[in-house]
Design a protein around this nucleic acid. Structure first.
Lengths: 344, 344
DNA sequence: ACCGTTCCCGGAACCGTTCCCGGAAAAATA
DNA sequence: TATTTTTCCGGGAACGGTTCCGGGAACGGT
């Protein structure tokens, strides 16, 4: 309610012009040190705070970055977002975050909202079954800097940062092969997802590296959730086949499979069946036994995406580039009895 | 890079003044229907988009709401935030989200950032061991609308929305008492937290309601994390006391305790020891057996906080109020063998 | 004393939009 | 037809800051 102090108020109090005040506050060279001191003192005294809307308007930019992720209920995207925020805060930007709830329509609405808010650039992780290519294309044509992250679009020639899924899947499966497991069940992802063939490819690659043939009966679709993993594992066990290891498409699927195995009752984890998940979640440490999983460098992912976007904003004509990050396999009790993830 | 279309461009194309264009776009009464049509058509044709920075500057507001939460790695706050966003999006506001990483200093920095961004109001959930009361007080004195949510401040006379912790803790413990459990261990929270005595009070209340005396040996500090819960339970079992139920301060603590019990080896869950957590997390469904827990109405919490804030923005002189929400006890296999949380 | 620099400051335009106000043209009324 | 009312539109100020430009004063060197 108290009227906001402007640059003009300072000028009037000191009997000088507002341009001088502006220069003094901006610490420009052509202002008398004495008057600068006076201005700064008066600004302090009156509790002057610059009006960012005026500055944004004047400079014709908003200092807002948009981030669109498919969801943030799992800790996956929040971990990334934290680093994005940290980066842009340092550079004077605000970060607008939206989640699309895995819906292409909501994603489109979010993009629209970002556009209305006149964000200066966007970091996007697309929803499954994405249908907004036309929108991305238009945005790009209109000069909006875009960086895709983790879940990329099919748009050609974009700047993006991704994780080497294929390689990490190979490492995960090789970890099982190294322990002389051969009957390794892969609970694969939905066929519509781009990551599904990448991780499956890693699975095959590992077998090839070990000179072991792949048994196609040991590749079944496990979906994305705990429940779908539970069902797939239950049905697989019911079919009579017995695995000595399971490589889940992600952690929830692997955890669902663990529950199915425990309910089935005959097999112990990891002695009879070793379990490996993917894309490390907090729950990997909450289940019993703790789940071996591939931990992605989420902080680095966010940082890299932010850095790429800032570069694009500052130099719109820079060529598109793809950054590929490596991940890390965390070995725990679900696949190695000798590991110990318990405190003390 | 293509020059942005302004209201003036539309005016020039039509040979009319920009004030008329402005009125036409705002759908005001004093404009000829024919010219309005022409303006709208031309705006469409030129792909006109209003410059929000100019509008914000002109109207002297930013249409930005600030949300400060202590963390968002657990799904707890994200669930709340989703509803806040949904609400404010409908009302033409953008939502700026920051997380304080449970640090009072980071919280202060976030508040500062919000102030610089000139948010029109804030929804705040404070960090543990909060030291920023002076900041909240100053913000409020300067007319900033504030709503505290879930984790409130000690500032008197504030608008806030909270959950009836005490009552829900009573319900959780009564659920155990009703199943004839009497040796109920409470793994309590850190004594510095405001919620700790509330949940402990609920525990005592339940015993009182059942006319059963409380055994003080069955109240031990369990901390906040999986690891602290694990240690507390392990040490308790080592002491020789045997509980027939455990009421954890939150889900991670209860899950850590479950792991300690399983490692100990002698007792089955729930037959020998029933487990109950608090403040439902996704992991409650991921552990085996699924964990009974108190599910807080997070969506409603967010919606209510948003609604209260908007009311405060639109009517700054409205009196402060406290809204208390009830929660729901989800009974699962960890405390009731007959429950079934598995699919199909 | 004169000229050229340097230092410092004020005036004014500008960014895109809204809003107030006055007035012309058209329509309604006398 | 004259007068009043209504309808519609344009001019210009305002929002708060930045920046360009021009110029007065002080100062230096001859």
């Amino acid at each position: 309610m108290p009227k906001r102090i402007t640059i003009k108020d300072i000028a009037q109090h000191l009997g000088i012009s507002k341009s001088t005040v502006s220069r003094a506050l901006a610490d420009r060279y052509d202002v008398n040190p004495a008057t600068r001191e006076a201005v700064l003192a008066m600004a302090e005294k009156l509790h002057y705070r610059p009006n960012v809307t005026a500055i944004n308007f004047m400079s014709q930019n908003t200092k807002i970055i948009g981030v669109v992720v498919p969801e943030f209920l799992n800790s996956f995207f929040p971990r990334i977002i934290i680093e994005i925020q940290r980066f842009f805060e340092k550079h004077g930007y605000n970060v607008l975050i939206t989640q699309s709830n895995e819906s292409a329509e909501e994603e489109r609405k979010n993009l629209q909202m970002m556009e209305n808010a006149m964000v200066e650039g966007m970091i996007i992780s697309v929803v499954h079954r994405n249908r907004n290519l036309d929108y991305y294309e238009r945005l790009r044509e209109e000069g909006m800097p875009l960086v895709f992250m983790n879940r990329t679009s099919d748009l050609p020639d974009t700047t993006q940062v991704v994780i080497n899924e294929n390689k990490m899947a190979t490492a995960a499966v090789e970890h099982l092969l190294a322990a002389d497991r051969r009957r390794i069940l892969h609970l694969s992802g939905p066929s519509a997802l781009k990551k599904t063939p990448e991780r499956l490819g890693g699975y095959r690659q590992a077998f090839e590296n070990y000179g072991v043939p792949v048994n196609p009966n040991f590749i079944v679709e496990g979906g994305l959730t705990r429940d779908s993993g539970y069902r797939a594992m239950r049905d697989f066990l019911a079919s009579g086949l017995v695995p000595d290891a399971v490589f889940g498409f992600n952690d929830p699927v692997a955890i669902g499979a663990m529950m199915a195995i425990r309910r089935h009752g005959k097999y112990r984890i990891p002695q009879d069946i070793a379990m490996v998940g993917f894309s490390e979640s907090r729950s990997a440490l909450l289940v019993d036994p703790p789940l071996t999983s591939v931990e992605q460098p989420l902080g680095k992912l966010g940082y890299t995406a932010a850095k790429l976007l800032l570069e694009k904003i500052e130099n719109p004509d820079a060529p598109a580039m793809t950054v590929v990050l490596d991940a890390k396999l965390n070995i725990r009790e679900s696949s190695d009895e000798s590991a110990d993830s318990f405190p003390e």
